[in-house]
Write a protein that binds this DNA or RNA. Sequence first.
DNA 1: CATGAATGAGAATTCATTCAT
DNA 2: GATGAATGAATTCTCATTCAT
Lengths: 220, 220, 220, 220
Amino acid sequence: MLRADLVKTEPSSVSPGATRARSAKRARILDAAITVFARTGYHDARVSDIAREAGIAYGLVYHYFRNKEEILETIFEERWTGFVETVEAIAEAPTRTEEKLEAIAALILGAYRLRRDWVKVFVLEIQRSSRFAEPSQLRAVGRFFQAVAKILRAGQAQGALRGDLDPEVAGYVFVGGLEIVITALVLGVIRESDADPEAYAPKVARTVVEIFLRGIGARS
Amino acid sequence: MLRADLVKTEPSSVSPGATRARSAKRARILDAAITVFARTGYHDARVSDIAREAGIAYGLVYHYFRNKEEILETIFEERWTGFVETVEAIAEAPTRTEEKLEAIAALILGAYRLRRDWVKVFVLEIQRSSRFAEPSQLRAVGRFFQAVAKILRAGQAQGALRGDLDPEVAGYVFVGGLEIVITALVLGVIRESDADPEAYAPKVARTVVEIFLRGIGARS
Amino acid sequence: MLRADLVKTEPSSVSPGATRARSAKRARILDAAITVFARTGYHDARVSDIAREAGIAYGLVYHYFRNKEEILETIFEERWTGFVETVEAIAEAPTRTEEKLEAIAALILGAYRLRRDWVKVFVLEIQRSSRFAEPSQLRAVGRFFQAVAKILRAGQAQGALRGDLDPEVAGYVFVGGLEIVITALVLGVIRESDADPEAYAPKVARTVVEIFLRGIGARS
Amino acid sequence: MLRADLVKTEPSSVSPGATRARSAKRARILDAAITVFARTGYHDARVSDIAREAGIAYGLVYHYFRNKEEILETIFEERWTGFVETVEAIAEAPTRTEEKLEAIAALILGAYRLRRDWVKVFVLEIQRSSRFAEPSQLRAVGRFFQAVAKILRAGQAQGALRGDLDPEVAGYVFVGGLEIVITALVLGVIRESDADPEAYAPKVARTVVEIFLRGIGARS
DNA sequence: CATGAATGAGAATTCATTCAT
DNA sequence: GATGAATGAATTCTCATTCAT
């Protein structure tokens, strides 16, 4: 079964020696930045906050990154890639359409549980960073939507899905449904029930998939 | 029929005389702020930009608003209220559930055509303004989601909608589906076909409602 | 007789009212900058030093000038112009060549007495500012050399000067002779005799002109 | 005949073995520094630029020099010394005054052709380095002017030069005439004729000497 | 000797906000 | 109301210098 922890989180699986040290500091800066961005928001985060959080000196940040914005871009590029690759793996897998959609929903909602800060930064900051409109980032996001669209087109081809709806728009609707639930969670608008937080995400995931596949309308 | 222009756009329907002048300047500042926020983003927008756009001295901004943030809040409160009232009117209307959902979808996607800057600011700025977490704003957003949830609950009560799904989560899914399509339009990821821009929004609206009601899964 | 005080020093001969206030502050910043640049050198001068010297707040400097460099450029443009105009007036005057050259020498060496800081900044800072290589500045300096060359060409035409020497190179030699004497004074390498400081500059001026016209070689 | 290459340029005429290596790196740093200072100016040159130009790690610079400033000082001291010694040799030589002055002019203008970067740094940077006011450097510059003054005094003593002019001021005038021509060349204000660049410097040198000795005034 | 990661003081610049006119 | 000059806190970024390896 596909699991949320498929999202690769450790770019630190690196070669030893000098390289390790370099990567270690760099990775600490990125981790710290995610934490700080999630807490304060990108704009209100000071570079010195990141440095303090990472436990390093101020100027070292500029040793590894040209400026504050490059940190955000790097977070996106390095961490998003792992996510997209997982989604693409799901798309290629020899499973039924419904399973694939459920896997993606579980992946996203599961990521919220495991890497809440990442999700916050992706959802709240990167998305509206001015750089987000940049071709490279749009392309990276595009990979994700294409993977979803691929699942839908395959589903239509094999008769599992209706063929009369635009798979691209449908893909947006599916992702949008997931995204807003996450946003609501991130913003605390809806709160995981205290009773069984572990069970909440899967349940919501299933609801989204269910609506997406069979609709909320009563069967006539 | 419910129309996009139900969104009230003119707080300038005000009393005459001195008061009119006051309101006129104030309204010009708000309009200018929307334009500038849509262009630059809230954080990168300078008060002087807003003043220049409004054609006034920038000290005057502080006559009408305590600070920059209050401008954003005011935009939200004054302009969002009109939107929510329209949605609530739709919810109360004696029409079928499907019609109501279609009206909301049309309202939102139509607003994008008529008041693109407003939508940009709502979607991109206010949503992630740190103030968004403020009770007053959350309440305002909540009114909107409650109106949607009300439609869904009513639909369940009268048997038009399945009763086995959480209407709150379902509401998010519906709105999220619409929202992401708008975001994609705002960011230029998907582009209205040049052939018939007028027809694009309604068509997308219908697709979203269709998926939401009947699902994309093939009828077994 | 042409006098050193022909160098216009007061751009503050301005219109009254609001304009005066604006100009007053601006002029104070420029004056303060000259003082500070002369004392510390351009590179080591902090904008805050200039502000303190001018008795104004930090940020006001940026109200009037884009950045630190623009201050230096402005000093050059506004103050150099007065100097060049004086030199051009000397060049046009209906006096003998020797008188003209003496007037220029007196002007320059006199300026050193009256506006030592200006001379320091011109000689030591502006000349090696990276911007100095800019067309507009080279042109401004060019005006000065052209005025000198004009005097020399006129002298050659009327038979007062030898015709077998390149007037352009000769102009450089004349100005260079003056300039290095000033530099030596600025740097304190040579010191005006304590006995009669007033008489030193004119005496040096006459020496430079004398050498330039009749040479130091013994008459054969 | 005295030639420009009399200026000693290779402190690398050193003993072999380990010492050679040391000196080699040191010399490379100095050469690189001259190149970089000439290109960027002292203040804007970063130590890392010098290291990159020298092809070494920038920490190594601090093995050989206490700090950035010491590099400039060293350039001045080590390279200027060779120049001054050449000038002193010219002064001592059993040649006529005019020949001596021509040799110096040729030396300086020739150096501009051979070691343009050195001249740039001497003319533009060292001269206004704040450290220029340092006794040791003033003394070094003084040696040069004293050598020139010595030539002039000797010329006066043997009747080759007029005795009624201050030899010190006259020396400044001579050097100043040369210096400004060089500055003009450095800044590109005057350009060596493309036709015969080799001949330009000597020609200018002769013009300067000619004016200095016989003046530009028409013989009455 | 060599390297380049690490440090942190320092300075420029921005811009929201205040206030005298 | 209206203006825009004045203020200064806040922050980013640079770069000389140190130091562990």
